[in-house]
């Protein structure tokens, strides 16, 4: 199987909130220099899913990433778990748009790469939390798609997958090629062995820009009006009630109000 895995480098989503600031224009969240830049969490699951499919059925895995700056070093490290090659579309204009722009750019890059059997994305990026790129990408490519896939196998040339639904999962069969967005339940990215790390260090990341044929302008469709950081409530809100029963009821309502239950 020839698989393309879309990966994104994001600032560490688990870094302390104090290390992030909204910029003066009120549009971007700027992390401090010390915040590590990592692979988006679900993208790692997508990569593991690809690796497992390749273990079973052979083929190649191509990493594809879109970024405005030179992230080749990170992409090369991402190769260390065993992907075969990496392509970076490096263009500030292409990368500077919203999820829809990204999907368009990735779609044109995938068309330039050529035929593939499967495109895997993480179900949502750790920074935007949008979950738009995967399905939108499928739409641009005219391919079937499924989102929040927690398991995918190839059986007799058909993709058989488990998709997470509200109270369980559904089993789907799709004819490849297709685009799937992966959720993490069964896919923990494997630990890279030295052999793979060394092999990856010998590989070159292929870099494309807007000037390369096939990559065209993209357009955004989301207008961000404002970005702000919510007030960090550091105090624990203690439920005030006379009896344990009342406290429990009050708590349940507070949780409902927060949209948690």
């Amino acid at each position: 199987m020839d698989i393309i895995v879309c990966v994104k480098r994001v600032p560490d989503p688990e870094a302390p909130a104090s290390l992030f600031r909204v910029d003066a224009a009120g549009q971007k969240l700027v992390p401090a220099r010390s915040v590590p830049r990592l692979t988006s969490t679900y993208d790692e699951s997508a990569l593991e899913a690809a690796l497992q499919l390749r273990d079973q059925h052979g083929g190649t895995i191509t990493l594809l990433s879109l970024a405005g700056e030179d992230v080749s070093e990170w992409l090369q490290e991402a190769l260390a778990t065993g992907a075969d090659e990496a392509i970076l579309v490096r263009d500030a204009d292409l990368a500077g748009g919203d999820s829809f722009a990204t999907a368009e750019a990735l779609a044109s890059a995938i068309r330039r790469i050529g035929a593939c059997d499967l495109v895997l994305c993480g179900r949502q990026a750790s920074d935007t939390d949008a979950g738009i790129v995967g399905p939108a990408l499928a739409e641009h490519l005219g391919l079937p798609s499924a989102s929040v896939v927690r398991k995918v196998e190839l059986q007799n040339g058909t993709l058989r997958l488990e998709r997470a639904i509200e109270d369980g999962y559904e089993v789907l069969e799709i004819q490849p090629p297709a685009v799937l967005t992966i959720t993490s339940e069964l896919y923990q990215l494997r630990y890279a062995t030295m052999a793979n790390i060394m092999a990856a260090s010998m590989k070159e990341v292929v870099v494309w820009t807007k000037a390369d044929p096939g990559l065209q302008e993209v357009s955004s469709r989301i207008r961000q009006r404002r970005l702000y950081q919510p007030q960090e409530r550091s105090e624990c809100e203690l439920v005030k009630a006379d009896t344990p029963h009342e406290a429990a009821v009050a708590l349940a309502q507070m949780l409902r109000a927060r949209g948690v239950i």
Partner: peptide, 25 residues
């Protein structure tokens, strides 16, 4: 923003040529 919504909305947005906000509170 259910398994159905996640599946449908982005592709629908592309088809209709519009934007989309997901997981909106």
């Amino acid at each position: 923003h259910t398994s159905t919504g996640r599946d449908l909305a982005p592709r629908l947005a592309v088809r209709l040529g519009v934007g989309l906000a997901t997981d909106v509170a």
